[in-house]
Design a protein around this nucleic acid. Sequence first.
DNA 1: GCCTTCTTTCGAAATGTATCGAACAATACC
DNA 2: GGTATTGTTCGATACATTTCGAAAGAAGGC
Lengths: 112, 112
Amino acid sequence: MGHNPRPALHHPTLETVLVTAVLHALSDETRLSIVRTLHAEPDGRACGTFPVNVAPSTLSHHFKVLREAGLIRQEDRGTQRWTMLRVREVDARFPGFLDAVIAATEVASVRF
Amino acid sequence: MGHNPRPALHHPTLETVLVTAVLHALSDETRLSIVRTLHAEPDGRACGTFPVNVAPSTLSHHFKVLREAGLIRQEDRGTQRWTMLRVREVDARFPGFLDAVIAATEVASVRF
DNA sequence: GCCTTCTTTCGAAATGTATCGAACAATACC
DNA sequence: GGTATTGTTCGATACATTTCGAAAGAAGGC
């Protein structure tokens, strides 16, 4: 019998995620910071390389919330898990929304 | 000595509210429904007339959250409290954000 | 095989949130 | 003054969320 590869990650279609789920996912300071970082790096980055101040297990929890809200896509590359923002798909379902949120956080001298 | 009028409601300047507070305020189904109703009625309406399925005390709690997030303005008119969406101010601080959220909820056959 | 690296899952604890009913305040009207 | 009408505050409860450390799983290199 074969080996047991990592379970496939679930990436919901944007049509099936609730508006409230997206808003809730972004209403946390740490998760919003993750989305900001990803927005500035279209190629994505590995999970462990985000500049956040939480434990790895907590970070993993936040990625799950973002993934289930349809905001990020993750794939395995060797031992690390790559994370990308689903810009196209989010913008197709919520036109202008992501840009407006990012822009709101980029005003000088404003804390999230 | 005089009577004791209702305490003045606090309406924070949009510059002082956190982005996460606005997102959190809108991430609740009942509150999002209130904002949708107000968006369709620029003149505002009285607190008790919103089509929601919660007790008056719960509704009062939701108005407080929306008010402290800078999303609504309330003023007393006789025995009732009038509520309006702060469209201009919200749009000045978060350009395009409110419209994007409202539009996202107006897609046919989509639940919040 | 063994060890390192990266990430997740599993409790567990602390905190926050939505909800209600009962009681209270303020205004308007009689 | 008395009585409705309208909303808020308070206490209590149930549930959700954020957080961590410890343990485990999977891939890669030795």
